[in-house]
């Protein structure tokens, strides 16, 4: 049985189905550390927003998949993910929670709940639907 942990907007439809351990990136330093570790391709990257600009180096160096907690497919990160053909689920929400991101209203609690429930999980991104991207639990 498939367990969908989270759903969101799909930045673009693709048959790519990347698998990895979710890693939350909260700052440029987190990105530098990940790039330096040589383990970029082992992770699905979780970030706060569609305008999380410090993620760009990770995309250009081969990030396999992204989950954002806010932002639209038309945002900068959505545009970049299509250019790099890196699957990207945007403004994801937990299927087990009623909390939803609302522009200008969602506080830290929303993001912290998302990160706490996703970080460290082994997941696969299902982005075969033109509108909805899904974060599927693998273990």
């Amino acid at each position: 049985m498939t367990t969908v942990l989270a759903e969101g907007f799909n930045a673009f439809e693709t048959t790519k189905s990347p698998e990895g351990t979710v890693k939350y990136l909260g700052s440029p330093q987190d990105v530098i550390q990940l790039l330096s570790s040589g383990k970029l391709a082992e992770h699905i990257l979780l970030v706060r927003g569609g305008t999380t600009t410090f993620l760009s180096p990770a995309l250009s160096m081969g990030a396999i998949g992204i989950i954002t907690m806010s932002g639209a497919p038309e945002s900068h990160l959505g545009i970049l993910s299509r250019e790099f053909q890196t699957p990207c689920v945007m403004t994801a929400y937990l299927t087990s929670s009623d909390s939803r991101y609302v522009v200008g209203k969602s506080g830290d609690a929303h993001f912290e709940e998302m990160a706490a429930n996703l970080e460290g999980k082994h997941v696969r991104l299902d982005v075969t639907d033109s509108e909805v991207g899904r974060v599927v639990l693998m273990d």
């Binding site: 939350y24 990136l25 990160a115 706490a116």
Partner: peptide, 12 residues
């Protein structure tokens, strides 16, 4: 919010 371990790389 910071959930990843702090790194000292490049920091002063």
């Amino acid at each position: 919010m910071r959930l990843s371990p702090l790194s000292t790389l490049g920091r002063t």
